[in-house]
Structure formats: C-alpha cells, structure tokens
Simulated assay, not measured.
Amino acid sequence: MDTPAQRWTTERFQLGEGLRWTPSGLVGVDILTGRLLALDTEAPVRPVRILAQLDGPLGAVAPVRGAAGRFIAATGPGVAVLTVGADHDLQVEWLARPEDGAPTAMRMNDGCCDPAGRFWAGSMAYDETEHAGALYRVDPDRGVHRVLEGYTVPNGPAFSPDGGLMYLADSADGRIDAYTVTADGDLDGGRVFARVSEGGPDGMQVDAAGHLWAAVWGASRVHRYTPDGRLDRVIALPAAQPTSVCVVGAETPHLFVSSAAIGLEPGGEHDGAVYRAAVDVPAPPAAAFGAPS
C-alpha cells in the first residue's frame, strides 16, 4: 500500500464527486447540495470556488465541445445542459427527465463522455432500492436512450482511451463490469472485470496506459487495475469514503481524489476533503459532449 495522499482542501463536502479535468480546469460537484465546484490544481485554496448552484442534486458534468462555460450534466431526474455565465448566472436546458414519476424516488448519479462525444450517466434510488438504477446514453444529436437496467448504485462509467471498452461499477454489489462499445454506442459482452472485498467501487477513470483507477467507498483507499483486471496499486486515504478520481498533468501527473462526509456522524476531520497523490502515468482530459470535428 502506498503512502497516504496529501489533503488538498480544508473544506469538507457532503458528497463530493465527479472530479473532471476540463477546459475550465479541475471541476467537481457536491451532489446533494447541487453545487458545481472549481479546484486549483497548483495550490490548495480556501474556499473552493463555486461555479454554479442548482436547485436539485448534481451528479456529474462533462464539458460541451467548443463551448466555454457549458456543461452537460446528470442532475435531478435527468440530463440537462448548463450554461455558466461570467458573473456565475446559470441557464439550465433540460434534454430529458427520464426518472420523473418512477415508482421510487430517483436521482441521477455519476456520468461522463466517451471519446465519440456521447454522454453516459447512471441513475439510482435515493433509498438505494436494489436494482432500481439504470444507465442512460445521450448521443451528440441530444437523443437520450436507456441502455442498461438492474444496477443499484451505478458509478463511473469510464472508457478506454480508444472508447471501445466501458467500465461501470455497481457500488452496492462491490463489482466493476466491463462492456464492449460498438461504433454506434451499443453495449456488448458484459462481464465482471473486478470485485472489491471491502467497501464498494465508486468513481473511476482510465489513464493513458489503460489502467483503471477506482475510488473505493468505505475502504479509505483508491485502487488501480491493469487492463487485465489485476490490482497493481493502492493509495491510502485518511477519509473513509473516497468517491471519485481524476489524473491531472502530463509532465508531473497527480491523482486528485474526492470524498464524502455524508452518513458519518460525526465523522473524522478528513472526511469530505479532496486529496492529491503523485502518479506515474498521465490521463487524457475529460472527453467533451458533441461529435468530434
């Protein structure tokens, strides 16, 4: 096990998540407070800058191709495009609200784009009803499709550098699945890629060498897996509930890790903070929504 990571923020977030390296810098969310946050990658800054405040939960965002200050977002019961103005005014354009009226109260959770510019995001029940969650795909033409069902707490997804492989975790079941992604965005060949014996895999990212990084909720650590599913690196954290990961920097790459304080009463002083650790392989920035030119 590696040396514990450095604490990067003095602030503690309720449910910090969704770290992404974007043209707007390193962004993340505090899901249940609906805040879109910007983090400085060179020096810890307090307070963390708030880019936008939504009325409901905000699961994750991805940049919109060629549109500074615009993000596609997994938020509330669906997917929306957010436009953040220079003075932090916010416009919300809903693309779909597929979880409105579900038998149990649902919200969107984690999400990201693949290299082809499609946005993928999962949904989950507030009370974590078993198998109530689903995975949605938003195509560049803004069509929204329900593509997988039966997950309880879907997290990720994350994509191989060429976009041909998708990893999707079910945190409640302690597993990470892998799917082949066709050119049209269909999924094939689902299989279990890895399981964790303690806690549950949460937010994930694939680096430039094809390693899968996964935050492990409830286990105070981050795992890195080789492309064949072998655990080859562990980073320890003083926070009990790591939630998402993001590698930043090409010359001297660092892994940033968010965490959550929710459900920990009273919780430790480190729970809910963001952490940083040096790593040996860079990762591409977050893929953008929209067809590549």
Rank of each mutant, 00 (worst) to 15 (best):
D2M: 11
L15S: 08
G25Q: 03
G34Q: 13
R35L: 14
T41L: 05
E42A: 14
V45N: 04
L51Y: 00
P57A: 15
G66Y: 01
A67V: 12
G69K: 11
R70W: 09
F71E: 02
A73S: 10
A74M: 00
A74L: 00
G76Q: 15
A80E: 06
H88T: 07
H88S: 10
E93N: 10
A96F: 01
P98W: 00
A102C: 07
M108N: 00
D114T: 06
P115G: 11
G117I: 11
R118A: 15
W120M: 04
G122A: 05
G122Q: 00
M124R: 01
D127Y: 11
E128C: 03
G143K: 12
G143W: 06
R146F: 07
L148F: 07
T152A: 03
N155D: 03
N155G: 07
G156E: 00
A158S: 09
F159W: 01
S160W: 02
S160G: 06
Y167Q: 04
D170G: 14
G174Q: 12
G174L: 09
I176P: 00
A178S: 06
Y179L: 12
Y179K: 11
L187V: 10
R191V: 09
F193L: 06
A194E: 05
R195S: 10
S197Q: 15
G200A: 08
A209G: 09
W213V: 06
R221F: 01
H223V: 06
R224A: 13
R233G: 08
A236I: 04
A236N: 02
P242V: 06
S244W: 04
C246R: 10
A261G: 04
I262L: 13
G263T: 08
G267E: 04
G272M: 12
A273S: 05
A273F: 08
R276K: 12
A277P: 10
V281S: 04
P282Q: 10
A283I: 14
A283F: 03
